[in-house]
């Protein structure tokens, strides 16, 4: 079965519809599926709900879909660094559901594993816990959080083989594996597609069973906070 597509637009063909939910990988601007986000912008799909740790910046990442008003709701842990996001949120155009970062990651992982709900002590006694089921285990209180089951996963990996086995690079892995797992269909963009058999099976980070469509492309990989030290400091 061929999983390789020529470009992001072809890879998304037939998968997009207004009002859909999308789980996206990435942390800040690191490891985001920038080519697929561009293609969604071009497709003009509306009323999207995104489960994504962040919302990009004004002109990069999910931020480009905020500019075109394609996003209805964000499920995120941190949305700073994005003026257009704040403007739409404060004016009521955009819904926002804050999830603690680990709760969001686990909600994606759980959804991908067929687990509709789980208990966590994160957020107990805070606004996050309001309206959620509380349950005690071994004398400690936990709240129930629900798994995320998205219509589509869009993720960025470093390398894929032709069967969709993925390898990520450094901290660009972040939310990509759990985001990949929780969608009905998962589309992956990589820097390099390598022949099946050329990756060490012991070194696969995410098996190809989670991956349905793959594209290879050039990535801008923008740096959000460039911090360095001088050589004489070493």
């Amino acid at each position: 079965m061929n999983k390789i597509y020529a470009n992001a637009t072809e890879a998304l063909d037939g998968l997009l519809f207004d009002g859909m939910s999308i789980a996206a990988g990435g942390f800040g601007l690191c490891g985001i599926p920038e080519l697929l986000l561009d293609a969604i912008k071009t497709a003009g799909t509306k009323d999207l709900t995104f489960a994504s740790n962040n919302a990009g910046v004004d002109d990069f990442g999910i931020g480009i879909l905020l500019q075109t008003r394609q996003v209805k709701k964000m499920i995120s842990s941190y949305v700073g660094e994005n003026a257009e996001f704040m403007r739409q949120y404060l004016s009521g155009e955009l819904e926002l559901e804050f999830n603690p970062q680990g709760t969001l990651a686990e909600r994606m992982r759980a959804g991908g594993c067929g687990i509709p709900g789980f208990y966590t002590k994160t957020g107990v006694g805070t606004v996050i816990a309001e309206g959620k089921e509380h349950k005690d285990f071994n004398g400690e209180t936990y709240i129930m959080e629900e798994g995320i089951f998205a219509d589509l996963s869009i993720v960025k990996a470093w390398k894929a083989d032709e069967t969709g086995n993925l390898i990520f690079r450094k901290t660009a892995r972040n939310f990509n594996p759990p985001a990949a797992m929780c969608g009905k269909t998962c589309v992956v963009e990589v820097e390099e597609i390598v022949p099946t058999g050329s990756l060490d099976p012991d070194h696969i980070h995410l098996p190809g069973i989670y991956v349905h469509r793959i594209i290879q492309g050039e990535h801008e990989k923008r740096i959000e906070q460039r911090t360095t030290r001088k050589r004489e400091d070493a």
């Binding site: 690191c30 740790n53 970062q101 990651a105 470093w158 939310f175 594996p177 759990p178 911090t227 050589r231």
Partner: peptide, 29 residues
């Protein structure tokens, strides 16, 4: 060091950082 920033290697404050010989990477979950 200046010129050696890697966009795939950042900390939770989104700053560019480096790895050590003991470093391990993993996903957010």
């Amino acid at each position: 060091f200046e010129g050696e920033e890697d966009p795939d290697l950042i900390n939770a404050g989104k700053q560019t950082i480096t790895e050590l010989n003991r470093t391990a990477y993993f996903d957010s979950a």
